[in-house]
Simulated assay, not measured.
Amino acid sequence: MGRLTGGDPSLLRRINSAVVLQALRAADSPTLTDLVQVTGLSRPTVEGVVEGLIETGLVVEAAAGEGATRRQGRPARRFRFRTEAGHLLGIEIGPHRVAALLSDLGGRVLDTAQRPVEERAPADERLERVRAVVADLLRRTGVPRDSLRAVGVAGPGIVEADGTVRLSTALPGWTGFPLGERLRRSFRCPVLVENDANAAAVAEHWQGAATGSDDIVFVLAGLSPGAGSLIGGRLHRGFGGAAGEIGALHLLGREATPEKLLSTTGEPLHPLDEAQVAAVFAAARDGDAQAREAVDRFIRRLVHDVAALVLALDPELVVIGGWAAGLAGVLEPLRRELARYCLRPPQVALSQLGEAAVATGALRLALDHVEGELFAVESTVTGRRRTAAR
């Protein structure tokens, strides 16, 4: 293999292109002079890069007067990054619904769509529901399928690097399902598959309750709670992708199963679904003593699960999402109990994105991928990615 040097023309062109494109995206219709000042590159280099980016369709000359102040003489040419040059999808695959968000290359959501799905629907039927939601969304917005640059997908379970679901107790037939491979047949672009709680953590850090914190735990609190965590602003998946699977603690025999935990009769709660649990919560709010005890047990379980992560990771912030985010008064018990269990109690906040968190996080993962492609330089010698400064 030939040695790649700092003077290699191909590498230099890629670096210059990434730097100029990043400057274009960050600025409001800059001129060539603006780009020269921001990037530190020579004017001929910037001109050449901009013309090349125009040919690819990623950059266009701005309309007259766009981003300009009125001056005498001929106005300088201005340019802008074409966020409309491609599109991204963020998809949530859940027990009871499939939802999708469509955005431009700037991450601006253009439209959303969702459809219900039966909890016991087999994997193939659930996948067909995904395809139907996407087809409906693209048809309504008039976006052609080949305009998609990346698709992010999130759902319950432990996900392998290739998008195979290694383990999922929430969806029938999902364990071992090659989700990434199956979805790649439907799209001519990269498909990234992630755990739902991990995606929600990314979403809250991007646009929700955790925008000002880089060390966070997001708890997707349902019947079998899961958690996603960011350490130093980076998603922590663990060695095998199973980090944050706190819902597995009851499998160790530490406490009762969710069916018993939320029962108000002493008998396991069947069917164990959102409607049943919502009824228990509503009864507790109305003063039913047994329902209050059930909700108290739920909160105690949640506190113990969250405390285990807090002690291990020492986050600045814990964000509560899922069903628990809708529980009246859930924050104070959590704060009080975490103060008892944890050496340094974190801040606790409710999710700001609600049921949109998972799909929003999936969209962000797709955006991250495209940004890496557009603004990064891959060294063929080391195999390491160098990203233009943001």
Rank of each mutant, 00 (worst) to 15 (best):
L148W: 12
N16P: 01
L313F: 13
F177L: 00
P172Y: 14
G247Q: 07
V60F: 09
V191G: 12
V159G: 03
S213I: 07
R14F: 03
D305L: 14
R384C: 00
A356Y: 06
R166P: 01
E378N: 11
L192P: 06
P271R: 13
R390A: 09
V219Y: 12
T112I: 01
G266Q: 03
G180K: 06
V19A: 13
R340C: 05
R386M: 11
A357E: 07
L12D: 08
A27T: 02
V219T: 10
I216H: 12
T387A: 13
L167Y: 15
V358K: 07
L311H: 13
R97F: 00
N198G: 08
R340F: 11
D111T: 01
A201G: 13
A199P: 09
A197W: 13
A197P: 08
A359Q: 11
E259A: 15
G52D: 12
A197V: 13
G106H: 08
G48D: 06
L338T: 09
S213F: 14
G321H: 10
V330I: 15
L171D: 08
T360S: 14
G212P: 06
Q114F: 13
E181N: 04
L35C: 07
R77W: 05
V133A: 03
L24M: 06
V36D: 09
H304C: 06
V330E: 01
V165K: 03
A339P: 02
E92C: 02
L183W: 11
L363S: 07
E371A: 05
Q72E: 10
E160T: 03
S10N: 09
A308R: 10
V330L: 02
A170P: 00
R182L: 05
A100P: 01
V319N: 04
L338V: 08
T265H: 00
L24Y: 09
Q276Y: 09
A289W: 07
N195P: 04
R254P: 00
L269K: 03
D136I: 04
S379R: 12
A349H: 05
D214S: 14
H87S: 14
